[in-house]
Design a protein around this nucleic acid. Structure first.
Lengths: 201, 201
DNA sequence: CTATACTTTCAGTAGATACTGAAACAGGAG
DNA sequence: CTCCTGTTTCAGTATCTACTGAAAGTATAG
């Protein structure tokens, strides 16, 4: 068990400098550091820590690993590894891989960061932004003069709420549009949007 | 207590159509629907549901409310309301407000959606992206030839990891830059970036 | 000063989420 | 068929997060 997974970054660096460690260990320490931070970030973004760590591991090693490799490296149970790997495959940011003459299944991360980001962002938009936009429209319908009555529609409180709903709708619509462009053509390398931006600004 | 807060959207709509309800109730139902969805979205984005709901309430009513208003409307305890309101003030997306001749404190949401978004995004970037970028640089340092040795640095596994670190760093650096432009001048209305994009695409 | 009106804090608890480990399952080899 | 290797499922449990409610704190009025 690598102490790296429990020590703060500063301590790891210190250890690396002072102790006599093999290059192999140093590579591993570097990878562990990345994995841990990535996991922490995932946790605050609604992706669970372990899943984020598994993905980080597959990404950073850039080599196909089997379930046991993952279990051992991250100190998690078989059940957890199995479920999380499946879930990552469902998202589409890692892939199953059969090796010739091997019965075990291996897993590898997509290599293109832009593609990974694009997949995650698209899925989140679909699951979280779209329903909100739909709800806003529903709210607006409920406050239409035809629904709530002419007199009521003229009330200050109703007008204020309608204004806010409208502002939010506009914001989300524009965001969606930008976003669509941002990820729509993000396969392999910088997207068109980013290129436009970097030139224009 | 409004049943609206526990029924699914479809049921609310149905109820609205069929029952005889006052415009005041209908306004409230519409607001509750928005508040609930907003809370759900917040939950999957690492902001807790209640905080998101409080903000949604202040935003959608577009009127200053006091602690008791919030407690009553969202059915939460005084303690919870107090802590969450403070936290929202700390974020800067709602403001304390003293009314003449009132001892109670009132709260109101910022009205500009772009500004709200900009504040949230900037804070999250600072707390979550920046540390990752720093970690990546630290990881790279550990794999420099000067640190790990010339022979080791030439190893395939080390080269692969360095490549991945580099790709990720580039991605995050570009994202940061775009982001900076996106929120840097987002005060009041569409930012320059969005205007550039909408024109260019 | 005390009384009143309101706010904040925090220990304890409820509820949600993630994880384990063992049992069931799948399928290829003999 | 059975044995073996590897995978998935899921009930039970550990862990973490959010929430309550009551007590302590703060400030203004009288």
């Amino acid at each position: 068990m690598a102490p790296a997974t429990t020590l703060p970054p500063a301590a790891i660096e210190k250890e690396t400098r002072e102790a006599k460690i093999t290059p192999q260990q140093q590579l591993r320490t570097s990878q562990d550091l990345f994995i841990r931070r990535w996991g922490e970030m995932g946790a605050t973004w609604g992706i669970n820590r372990t899943m984020a760590e598994i993905h980080a591991l597959l990404y950073i090693t850039a080599q196909p690993l089997c379930t046991d490799d993952v279990m051992e490296r991250l100190h998690i149970s078989r059940g957890n590894a199995s479920m999380s790997l499946r879930s990552l495959c469902d998202w589409g940011i890692i892939r199953r891989l059969h090796k010739r003459g091997e019965r075990r299944e291996f897993f590898e991360s997509l290599s293109d960061v832009w593609e990974i980001f694009s997949i995650i962002a698209t899925e989140r938009k679909r699951r979280e932004m779209d329903p909100v936009l739909e709800t806003i429209k529903q709210c607006q319908t409920m406050l239409d003069a035809s629904s709530i009555g002419k007199t009521a529609a003229a009330q200050e409180s109703v007008k204020l709420t309608r204004q806010r709903l409208g502002d939010m709708e506009e914001f989300m619509a524009v965001t969606n549009k930008v976003f669509q462009q941002f990820v729509g053509n993000a396969k392999s390398g910088l997207s068109r949007v980013v290129r436009v931006l970097l030139k224009a600004l």
